[in-house]
Amino acid sequence: MRSLTQPGPVATERMKAVPCRAHPVQLPLAAGATVNEAITGALARAGFSSGYVTLENVAVAPMRYVIPANAPDDTHVAWYSDTHAPDGVVVIERAGVIVGTRDGEPFMHCHGIWREPDGARRAGHLLPHDTIIAANAQLHGWGTEGAVFVAREDPETNFKLFAAEPTEPAAARPNALVATIRPNGDVCLAIEALCRANGRSSATIHGVGSLVGVDFTDNRHVPSYATEVFITRGEVSASTCSLDVALVGLDGEIHEGRLKRGTNPVCITFELLVAFAD
C-alpha cells in the first residue's frame, strides 16, 4: 500500500476514538457572519462545542479556499496552494465540517464542493475565517457530549491537527465515537477496527481528511499523493466499511466515488464521527 514518510517521529498510537453521545441538530446560519463564527456559534447556542455538520446549498461571499500543494521544504509532506478568491457569490453544494477548538477558540475544519459565479464546479479546503455567509441558511448534523475535537501540535506530521479527547462528565449511554486516524493506514480498515474495539458491527460514518492517492471500486485511480477529502456517504454494515467520498487533488480536479477497501492510506489525518444505532 502507498505511504508517505512524515517529517517527525512515528506515533505509537495510530488511531484514537472517544465514546460520546451524538445529538442530532438542525440549526440556522445567519448571513453576514464568517463561516467559522456562524457554524461554531450555532452549535454553541445549541449547547455543543464540538461535532460534525453538513452544509448544503449555502451561499457565501466572499469565498476563500485552498487545495493541496507540494510542500515547499522537508518540514511537511504536503502543503496548501495559494488562496483561491473567486469574485461574487459562491454556492457550497455540499461540505463536511468538523467543529472543535483551536488555541482555546471555536474552530472548524471544512472540505467541500462549490459552484463559482462562472459556473465552474470546484472543491477544496475552505478558509473559515475569510469566508462569509451571504444568505440565511440551515445546517444539520450532530453535537457531541462527552468527547470533543481539540487542535494540538502533532510532532509526526508537524501540523496542528484535531485530536479526539474526552470531557467530564463522560456521556451517559454513548452512541457514537469522536475519532482521528493517523497517516499511512487504510481508512476503511481503521474504521472497522474502531467499531470492533467498541463491540459494534454497524454505524454511519461522517468526516473529513486526506488520502495518499485514491483507489475507487470501479478501478479509477487518482495519483495525487495529497488530496482533500470528505465523506458523502459512509457506513459500516456487517463489520465492513463502505465510504463514498468527494475529493480534490494537486491538479484541482474533482473526483467522486466509492473507496476500494484496503488500498487507501491516510495522508495527514482523518477526523470522524462514527454514529451507532441506539
Results as ranks from 00 to 15, higher is better:
109 H>G: 04
10 V>I: 15
6 Q>F: 00
173 R>Y: 11
244 D>K: 10
231 I>C: 04
99 V>R: 01
200 R>A: 12
203 A>K: 03
223 P>S: 00
224 S>L: 02
27 L>I: 10
15 M>K: 13
139 L>C: 08
103 D>E: 13
257 G>S: 09
189 L>A: 07
145 E>Q: 12
217 T>I: 14
230 F>K: 04
188 C>K: 08
174 P>N: 09
228 E>I: 11
226 A>H: 15
168 E>V: 13
51 G>K: 01
125 H>Q: 10
208 V>M: 03
76 H>N: 09
146 G>Y: 05
256 E>V: 15
211 L>H: 05
103 D>K: 03
8 G>F: 03
190 A>E: 13
157 T>C: 13
144 T>P: 08
210 S>C: 11
81 S>Y: 05
247 L>I: 06
185 G>A: 15
232 T>Q: 07
244 D>N: 14
227 T>V: 15
128 P>S: 11
149 F>S: 07
151 A>P: 08
187 V>Y: 00
179 A>W: 08
98 I>N: 03
86 P>D: 07
35 V>W: 03
41 G>A: 00
196 R>V: 15
129 H>W: 00
255 H>N: 12
258 R>L: 11
251 D>K: 08
145 E>N: 10
165 E>L: 14
175 N>R: 02
54 T>R: 11
80 Y>Q: 15
165 E>F: 09
47 G>D: 04
6 Q>C: 07
266 V>G: 04
270 F>T: 05
55 L>P: 00
